[in-house]
Each structure stands twice: as structure tokens, then as C-alpha cells.
Design a protein around this nucleic acid. Structure first.
Lengths: 181, 181
DNA sequence: GCGGGTAGTGATTGGTCAATAACTTGTCCC
DNA sequence: GGGACAAGTTATTGACCAATCACTACCCGC
């Protein structure tokens, strides 16, 4: 297998492992085991653990952005907001690791920024902005509407992370499929 | 110093340490050093590391809830939303560790729930619900208004965590004092 | 001045982990 | 068939960490 292909599998494995364990709580050994290679080989493919985490973070945001873009594609303007919202809810249900990795990314950026490391945050912000802009354009480039839409998304993220069960009153008004089991 | 007082200082120290390092990234040694006691003594005051983290999480939510309650106290109904929003933004600026700890709590709950541990989440949800209800009552118990208000709060959390600098277009529409430096 | 309870420490243990260095295997080209 | 390069491994190192155990120091009532 070529190094580039291996890097791809490493990123996929890293997303799963980091999603559950976070940066510190995930060993490079665990990632290597999931990929099926030896642990030291990871350091031939990436300079260090941080680089693997960054790649996983960016990939996670890219996937989300793609889900949004696909959902909005070919849908009449007035239905785009619903289409994106439903696609995002479906993503959360079908692939809960995606939300976990997203949250892990946020705390990792916040922690890095807090100690003066801005490189990691810069890379994440760049991709995150692409996601924001994808939503913005799809919704007709209305600043307030985009902001409100994203705000509800972040609230869903939080309720989902906190494990609020289906039927809880905080979920009133959200579509059924947005609720965790 | 009494054990109860010590527990208080431990929780305060733990909030700072866990905020920056997360659960796995923070050693009990670091907490003990900040408190000024030996590391093994922490395990006389708390049964284990998890219990310290939980106490720090709950305290963090309590503080936020109190800030909200104080801000709404004695303010005319139509100004409460602004008063709470401004007080929350002030909290984020004055005490950034508070947001970090909040985010660490969210990922910790999500991770715990993902592996079938619901006790930690249950304790956090209980306190978080008190915070939600405090906002809900202050804003006049309108379900939709509360939800939108909280949603904007969660978006501010995310933008702040990602370290978006002041003046960035994503912050348009938010009050100046909500922007990180 | 002594007994008991409370606050607190030192030493240790069994385990984990990122990263480096040195070595091996396979393959393709000339 | 040999040389060169890419893919991959084993062994190791130096550091860190949660938790337990046995011990000490102080204070209070009597």
C-alpha cells in the first residue's frame, strides 16, 4: 500500500480513536492497531501525534461541509434550510463519532489558543470558515439567517453531546430525527 | 484547614487545571501542587480522579447559573435578555477558564455516554437543566425564546473556543464585548 | 499527659506512552 | 543480478501517572 493510501487509513482510524479518547486520551498505539500497522510507522507518515490529530480534525470538518453541500445541491431555495438541517441531523445519528470529533476539535483549539499556540487554531478556523460559507451561500447569503441557523446547529450539538434523551422538553421544536436514542 | 475547606480549594484548582488539560491531560499531581498539598492527600478528600472532575464540572455550571441569575435579578422584564447576554459575555472575557471547563465537560459527558457510562452525564444534565430553567424563567418562560437565546449562547461558545479574533465577520451582530482579543 | 480523631506526608508500584534508531523485506529498473 | 528506494518492523528509552500503604503531627477533652 502506498504511503498516501496509508495516511488516508490512519486519518480514518484517528478520527474514531480521537473522537472517543480526545487528544491526550488516545495512544498512537491504539491508532496503529486499528490501521493494522506498527506504532512507530505512524511517525514515518506523520511528523508527530499532533499532526495526526490535526489531520483528523480537518477531515471531520470537511466531511460535515460535504454533507451540507450535498444536501443543498439541486434543492429549491426555500427548502435548502430544512434540507441541510435534516442532513446534519442524519449525520449525527448515523455517525455519532463525527460529533464527538467535532467537540474534541473545539476543546483542542481552545486549549491550544490558551497557551499561545495559534497554528492549530488557524488551520481549523480556515476549514470551519469554508463550512460556514457553504451554509451562508446555500441559505441565500443572509448574514442573520446564517447566524441563527448555525446557532441552532451548535445548540443541537450541545444537547446531543450532553446525551439528552428523546422526548426531553429541551428538544421540543426540533425534528424527531435530531434526538439521540 | 478543615477537610471541607480543602475540598473547596481542590475544586477551584481542579477547574483551572482540567480547563486547560482536560480529564486525561491533567495529572492529580498538578492539582495537588496548585492546592499546596501532597498528591496522595487528594484521594482522602475524593474517592478518585473522576470524582474531582465531576465536582469541577458541576461547580463550573453552578457559577454560570449564578451569573445568569444575578444578572436578571431586579432588572425590568424587557431588559433581562440583554442583561443576561452581557453578563455571560463578561464572564467569558473575565474568566476564560470557565468556558474551557464548560467545553471539557461537554466532551467528557459525550465520551462517557458513548461507552455506556450514564452516571456522569446524569449529574451534569441535572445541573445544566437548572441553568436552562433559570434562563427560561428569567426570559418569561417562552419556550421558543429560551431556545433561541441558548442557541446563540452555544454559538458564542463555539466562536470563542475557536479563537475567532475581534472584528471577524462571524461576530457581526454580537456585542463588542463578546469578542476574544 | 494520654487517648482518639483529624489533617497530612513519603515511598512505592504497576502500568502506559511518544518518539528514535537500527534493521528487514519487497520491487522495479538497468 | 545488483543497486536503490519505498514500505514496514523490533527493540528501546526516558518520562509520567493514579492509587495504595504505612507513617507522622497536631489538637481536644479529660
Amino acid at each position: 500500500m502506498s504511503a498516501e493510501e496509508r495516511r488516508g487509513s490512519v486519518i480514518r482510524a484517528a478520527m474514531s480513536e480521537f473522537a472517543h479518547g480526545g487528544y491526550k486520551g488516545t495512544s498512537t498505539e491504539a491508532i496503529a492497531r486499528r490501521v493494522g500497522v506498527s506504532q512507530p510507522y505512524l511517525f514515518r507518515l506523520f511528523p508527530n501525534k499532533q499532526a495526526i490529530f490535526l489531520a483528523a480534525s480537518l477531515r471531520c470538518i470537511d466531511i460535515t461541509r460535504q454533507v451540507i453541500a450535498d444536501a443543498a445541491d439541486g434543492v429549491p431555495q426555500e427548502e435548502k434550510a430544512d434540507a441541510i438541517a435534516n442532513a446534519y441531523k442524519k449525520l449525527l445519528l448515523d455517525d455519532p463519532e463525527s460529533l464527538l470529533m467535532q467537540m474534541q476539535t473545539y476543546v483542542a483549539v481552545a486549549s491550544a489558543e490558551a497557551v499561545g499556540d495559534h497554528e492549530f487554531g488557524e488551520a481549523v478556523r480556515e476549514r470551519w470558515q469554508e463550512m460556514w460559507d457553504t451554509v451562508h451561500l446555500a441559505l441565500g447569503a443572509d448574514v442573520d439567517e446564517t447566524k441563527t441557523f448555525m446557532a441552532y446547529g451548535m445548540l443541537v450539538n450541545t444537547l446531543f453531546s450532553l446525551g439528552y434523551p428523546a422526548g426531553h422538553r429541551n428538544w421540543e421544536g426540533f425534528h424527531d430525527s435530531a434526538r439521540p436514542a
